[in-house]
């Protein structure tokens, strides 16, 4: 048996939050998501949580589990011990239990113009991109927008308008893509005190990312690039 302690809150009904306790029987390979389904199907049909792929690729199921933001579907219960404590992602309004409102999260994403911009007329076939050029965006493109980094970021906690590691990572994915020709505008979109310079390199995002991406490294690379482009502007090249 594992004991799940789950954050419960319904803003339309509840005045305060509470933690409910559920006993979940052990099973070989039991994941936290399996446990949540066991509870929904057998113990409390009102429990709210998101999930879909159960394979760590859709990004639905990020939550705070025993002290860390992770995907519930790829987290095994066994190494967590007898007690599993689950809270929703932080810094976003709770809609019900483990389901948060991601409106603001996606609004930030939209602000950085999350699509390739090229001034060049596209060729008849594909743009040529050397393997070495593609390597520059390799890990940046794997983000599943699960929100684990955002939930763990103390800067996002204090400033809801901070773009956040997920949106900045997305910006990096275009800035370092050999096909994108829009550097100047892109840099303007992140070169402000709610953008790259708000990041205090606390590295939480790097630690929690279930896809092993390092947004802080990408942000550092972009800071360098913004500084360079300013200098270039200054010397008028």
């Amino acid at each position: 048996m594992a004991t799940f302690h789950i954050f419960r809150f319904d803003p339309t009904k509840d005045k305060t939050i509470r933690f409910d306790r559920f006993e979940v029987p052990d099973k070989k390979g039991l994941t936290v998501l399996d446990g949540l389904y066991y509870i929904l199907e057998n113990l409390d049909g009102s429990l709210a949580f998101r999930s879909s792929c159960r394979a760590g690729v859709c990004g639905s199921c990020a939550m705070h589990i025993n002290g860390q933001y992770r995907l519930s579907c790829t987290t095994s219960v066994k190494p967590l011990g007898k007690n599993v404590t689950i809270r929703p992602l932080a810094h976003l309004p709770v809609l019900k239990d483990l389901v948060v409102d991601l409106t603001n999260f996606f609004r930030h994403y939209e602000k950085i113009k999350p699509y390739l911009i090229t001034n060049d007329q596209p060729p008849k076939k594909e743009f040529i991109q050397q393997p070495a050029q593609r390597k520059k965006i390799e890990s940046l493109i794997d983000c599943i927008l699960c929100g684990a980094c955002y939930g763990s970021c103390p800067v996002a906690a204090g400033e809801p308008n901070y773009l956040g590691p997920h949106a900045l990572l997305k910006a990096a994915r275009f800035i370092f893509d050999s096909r994108d020709t829009n550097d100047r505008e892109r840099i303007n979109l992140i070169n402000h005190n709610l953008g790259v310079f708000r990041c205090h390199t606390i590295f939480n995002c790097q630690q929690v990312c279930p896809k092993k991406i390092d947004p802080s490294e990408a942000i550092a690379r972009m800071k360098m690039k913004t500084v360079w482009s300013k200098l270039r502007g200054f010397f008028g090249s």
Binding site: Y115, L116, T118, P122, K125, E126, F127, I128, Q129, Q130, P131, Q133, R134, I137, I141, F174, D177, R179, D180
Partner: peptide
């Protein structure tokens, strides 16, 4: 052209 990051062969295609 929309930016999909396909894997590339040695010649960049």
């Amino acid at each position: 052209h929309w930016g999909c990051p396909f894997s590339r062969s040695e010649d960049g295609r």
